[in-house]
């Protein structure tokens, strides 16, 4: 019986030994008073005590925080961005009122490549406007005339069209024919101030440009959307033939 018990004890120890991580051997006691305050061991004990205190404080704080309640008080609300869906956007940077530009008031999201070259809608994109011409032929004897050039992209088909005329709806270029004694002496070209998206970038820093008769001038405009997400660059050629006929040709239009 005793022998069997001995074998069992040895077996139990053999099984437990590799499993246990730390083995406490003996129960000797170290008194801190016996350790010299100038010794390394004393310093280590001090560090250990600090760490234990910190941990205790942290634990106490965490325990106290677990039962704490906080009132959530709204202090500030700030609008960071507006994504237009339909109708009027009261925070539109250009026109807080009446900024519904499309009939159904919806923003149309179009890939830049589709807008440049056309896409699923069947239209040819901005490419359809390239090469188009608008003619203006005011009478030299009539009062000074203003001609608008309008570029429009159909949101459904992505077809681009250019039109000239007297309408002031959605235009971007204005040509004003100055007269001197009933004879057209100069043509002023300027971006429509009512459409502040259009900016004349070449010639640079110019708001308007005088074009003398029988001259040719290349102008470059950029149309930047309010959130700067889309920039369309348009280059036009203005040719004034004689004193009465002016043509505007779209040389290039592209989404940058």
């Amino acid at each position: 019986m005793r022998r069997a018990l001995g074998i069992f004890a040895i077996a139990a120890l053999a099984y437990a030994a590799p499993v246990a991580a730390d083995i406490t051997i003996g129960r000797d006691i170290l008194r801190s008073g016996d350790v010299s305050p100038s010794s390394k061991l004393f310093e280590l004990l001090l560090k250990s005590e600090d760490a234990r205190n910190q941990l205790q404080i942290q634990n106490e704080k965490r325990a106290a925080l677990k039962n704490k309640r906080f009132k959530r008080v709204v202090k500030k609300v700030q609008v960071k961005d507006v994504i237009k869906r339909a109708g009027n956007n009261p925070l539109n940077q250009q026109q807080p009122l009446n900024n519904t530009t499309l009939a159904n008031g919806e923003t149309v999201l179009v890939a830049a490549d589709d807008l440049n070259q056309g896409g699923a809608g069947g239209g040819a994109g901005l490419a359809a406007c390239i090469g188009q011409q608008v003619f203006a032929a005011p009478s030299p004897t009539a009062p000074p005339e203003i001609v608008f050039v309008n570029v429009r992209v159909d949101p459904a088909t992505l077809d681009c069209s250019v039109a000239g005329g007297q309408s002031a709806d959605g235009d971007f270029l204005i040509f004003q024919f100055g007269t001197n004694g009933g004879v057209v002496d100069a043509i002023l070209v300027f971006a429509d101030v009512l459409q502040p998206d259009w900016i004349l970038i070449s010639p640079p820093n110019r708001f308007l440009q005088f074009v003398a008769p029988n001259t040719t001038l290349t102008l470059t405009f950029e149309n930047r959307s309010a959130d700067n997400s889309v920039t369309i660059r348009t280059t036009v050629l203005v040719q004034t033939g004689g004193l009465t006929t002016t043509s505007i040709t779209i040389l290039n239009m592209e989404v940058l």
Binding site: V77, Q78, V79, V82, A86, G87, P90, N98, T100
Partner: peptide, 9 residues
């Protein structure tokens, strides 16, 4: 004037 917009706030 009616409007429907997504506001990021």
């Amino acid at each position: 004037l009616l409007g429907t917009n997504d506001f990021v706030v």
